[in-house]
């Protein structure tokens, strides 16, 4: 597990965000360095296409810098960045899907094949029989539950932040996590 990407110091983020709004480019660079890994990882989970994700992250930061004066004070910087990235990626995918009918299948990865089950650490399971069982059972967990679970255990977001990123209420975010754990538990027999 990559713990370096998980630790998010909120007080420092908000300070950097204020500095960025005031036009401090060092603050922009600091936020870029701090959150790039978390953003890239999340983007890859959504689309599995590296170039698309890299471009989208560039867009997000360029937008933030160009519109810094009108940005609100973000409650959670990580949630703001992830929701911007998510919106950017889904818009791009939607556009491509519309414009490029031929490669439609390729672009329909959200939500069908987003959050590939192979990315769950549990798939390191060495027992072959158990692994087979996981392979068939895990895909039955809906992608949105996976996404919420990822934002919780990997990105370390609170329910409020997950709600912001996924455009749901904090109560629903909590239900998603609860449901995801219940399903996981049934599958792995904890």
């Amino acid at each position: 597990m990559n713990s370096a990407q998980k630790h998010i110091d909120c007080t420092n983020d908000n300070l950097m965000w204020r500095k960025l709004k005031a036009g401090d480019e060092h603050a922009l660079a600091a936020l870029f360095r701090q959150f790039y890994g978390a953003m890239f990882d999340y983007g890859i989970k959504l689309t599995q296409r590296e170039e698309l994700v890299k471009d989208a992250i560039q867009e997000v930061f360029a937008y933030i810098w160009q519109n810094r004066k009108s940005l609100s004070q973000a409650n959670s910087v990580i949630a703001y960045l992830l929701v911007s990235l998510r919106r950017n990626l889904l818009t791009t995918l939607e556009k491509q899907k519309r414009m490029d009918k031929a490669s439609k299948e390729m672009h329909q990865e959200y939500p069908n094949t987003a959050f590939p089950i192979e990315d769950l650490m549990i798939m390191n399971e060495e027992n072959a029989a158990k692994k087979e069982k996981l392979k068939t059972a895990l895909p039955q967990i809906p992608a949105r539950l996976y996404e919420a679970l990822y934002l919780k255990t990997y990105s370390g977001l609170s329910y409020n932040e997950i709600a912001e990123v996924m455009k749901i209420t904090p109560g629903v975010a909590r239900n998603y996590i609860s449901e995801a754990f219940q399903r996981l538990r049934q599958i792995v027999d904890v």
Partner: peptide, 20 residues
């Protein structure tokens, strides 16, 4: 145990300085 089951693998990130 359940919490650890729900951990995700990280993806190697591109060169951040280059992207910056």
């Amino acid at each position: 145990e359940l919490w650890q089951t729900a951990q995700f693998r990280s993806v190697p990130a591109p060169n951040i300085e280059k992207e910056l």
